[in-house]
Design a protein around this nucleic acid. Structure first.
Length: 538
RNA sequence: CGCGGCGUGGAGCAGUGGUAGCUCGCCAGGCUCAUAACCUGGAGGUCGCAGGUUCAAAUCCUGCCGCCGCAACCA
């Protein structure tokens, strides 16, 4: 029985809801690693899912360039900082494109649009009375030309961790942002918006942090030539966090295109690493309050990906470059096995809200078990059976309703579970549902009905079995669209399904748009076989 | 008492009160359409340790041990 397609969607299809999501902007000091890629993939799945479900999506990514380290690194290379940033931005985007990250905009914080927006924002906060002049005192390293935190110095044994020389006590004028004045308002905001910080463990952390008392923060630096000038006192530059967070609004027109800004702000979700939760959940809303703007709707602090249980450090990655036994550079992995396998591994194996682990052995294991043997093989065997026995044309299947493959859970429920998991960013659980409740039953059904035998005694019955199996592939393709965009499309376009690929929604899985024409195989064949989706790794 | 996470059959994980589940590996069988892939069955766990709550705990509480991450410019 067909359901009202609008029933579960939007009451008024003319009103397209919008969805604005962002990822953290990255430091361009070194190339992306598997951890940064993890975040972008998780955000991309969400973006693709929302687009499928009818939202008008704006997906922002970018690089954080106004740092002392960038200026220093460029100087080391004898490059202009801007040229260095542009080159790194290009390299980052090469990786993101290889991973099929479907971002709509990529902001570099060295761009004029960001500088202008930042200056307007800080001026606004200043005018509103939340910025005041004071002095900052701390441990200053002459070599770094920067202040070191107490703990940094203490851990290194009383010296600068980089230069191994004792820092000097130094105080200098600076501007403070009155963060402490927002403590009560933040706590009220958290209380009124329990879903603001996810997952729960991050929320508890922020609550405890804010309740323990907030201190005003120094938001300026002196003596820098690279960075954004403070508009009301040009000898200062803006401290990186006060500058970086603003990318989320300068990219959508804050200070330059009010209409565009109004359309997209507030963001529906900021995807960030769990280490920067405090900045996004305390400092950032406070900054927005200070400027008279709305806070974002949701901040999701995802977990980390480790390599053999250890943190992926940038130096390790450089050291390991060229080590073929265990590649950790995303590009190296992608070059060998493709972006789809990369996406699958991290989404299936690493729970997004928590931590995950990456090892090369595990990567191969997951690749072979799930992608090659299960999904890929199911596709191959079904295509082959139809091609070999029916010449790629299942006659008189036009208008036929697919039969029911026995499963513990009905398809509609599976779809709802997958959707709920994606919306909660529990991507690994969504994928598990697809494998256990769609693909496994399909392989089992094939074995139980043995269409390769059945075709010899009852061509009609065998045809029905294959028709049902194709239905499972159609369901899998739709459900996998946000996760494996290319593979899902390949599977879907292997048949003449009614619904155009660009328009499929999760609902279509169980609504069964039905076949208008007889089911036909469209996949390119060689000897009645298709090219394997994921050739098994040895 | 800085904050947080983890400890479940050989390996990796899921499982927030009611007969312990998944993937890989292993053993035995079946099948042969398929990427030596697929299917069925089996062996293998006192769920870190010690207490407590409960008719009932991997699951809640207390303490302890071990590993890991963060600690206001490393996702």
């Amino acid at each position: 029985m067909l359901r009202d397609r609008c029933g579960k969607g939007f009451a008024n299809m003319a009103e397209t809801p919008r969805f604005y999501l962002t990822t953290a902007i990255d430091y361009p000091n070194s190339r992306p690693h598997i951890g940064t890629a993890f975040e972008k993939i998780g955000a991309d799945v969400q973006a693709r899912y929302r687009r499928m479900e009818g939202y008008e999506v704006h997906f922002l990514m970018g690089n954080d360039e106004n740092t002392i380290k960038v200026a220093r690194r460029a100087a080391e290379l004898g490059q202009d900082p801007k040229a260095y940033c542009d080159d790194m931005a290009r390299q980052f985007q090469d990786v993101w494109r290889a991973l099929e990250i479907s971002y709509d905009d990529f902001i570099q914080t060295s761009e004029p649009r960001h500088h202008e927006g930042c200056r307007k924002f800080i001026q606004k906060v200043y005018d509103n009375g939340y910025i005041y002049k004071g002095t900052y005192e701390g441990w200053y390293c002459e070599g770094c030309e920067a202040f070191k935190t107490e703990t940094e110095v203490a851990e290194a044994g009383g010296v600068c961790p980089n230069h191994r020389v004792p820092p000097v006590r130094r105080s200098e004028p600076c501007y403070y942002f009155a963060l402490s004045r927002f403590q009560d308002r933040l706590l009220k905001f958290y209380e009124a918006n329990p879903d603001f910080i996810q997952p729960e463990s991050r929320r508890n952390e922020v609550l405890a942090f804010v309740e323990s008392g907030l201190q005003d923060v120094n938001i300026t630096r002196t003596g820098q030539t690279w960075g954004i000038r403070v508009p009301f006192d040009e000898q200062f530059t803006i401290y990186v966090w006060f500058d970086a967070l603003l990318n989320y609004i300068t990219a959508i027109g804050y200070g330059s295109d009010e209409e565009r800004f109004q359309k997209w702000w507030p963001a529906d979700i900021h995807f960030i690493g769990k280490d920067i939760t405090r900045f996004h959940c305390a400092l950032w809303p406070a900054m927005l309050f200070a400027a008279g703007l709305e806070p974002p709707r949701r901040v999701f602090g995802h977990g980390f990906v480790y390599n053999r249980g250890r943190k992926v450090s940038k130096s390790d990655q450089d050291k390991k470059k060229g080590d073929v036994s265990e590649p950790t550079d995303p590009m190296e992995i992608i070059d060998r096995f493709g972006g789809e396998a990369f996406r699958y591994y991290f989404m299936r194996e690493c729970p997004f809200p928590g931590d995950g682990d990456y090892t090369w052995d595990r990567f191969k294991e997951v690749f072979n078990a799930d992608l090659a043997n299960n999904l890929g093989n199911l596709y191959s065997r079904v295509v082959r059976l139809i091609a070999q026995n029916y010449g790629g044309h299942l006659e008189q299947t036009a208008g036929r309703e697919p039969g029911v493959i026995y499963t513990d859970v009905d398809t509609e429920t599976t779809v709802e579970q997958v959707q709920a998991h994606i919306e909660a960013c529990q991507y690994n659980q969504a994928l598990e549902k697809i494998w256990r409740q769609i693909l496994d039953p399909a392989n089992q059904y094939a074995d139980r009905r043995e269409p390769w035998k059945l075709v010899k005694t009852d061509r009609e019955a065998a045809k029905g079995v294959l028709f049902d199996l194709v239905e499972q592939l159609r369901a899998a393709a739709i459900l996998l669209k946000p996760f494996l965009p290319r593979t899902a499309e390949t599977i879907y376009r292997s048949f003449n399904f009614k619904q155009p690929w660009e328009e499929v929604r999760h609902e279509d899985v169980w609504v069964h748009p039905g076949q208008v024409d007889d089911l036909r195989l469209l996949a390119p064949l060689v000897d009645n076989k298709v090219k394997p989706l994921f050739p098994r790794m040895t």
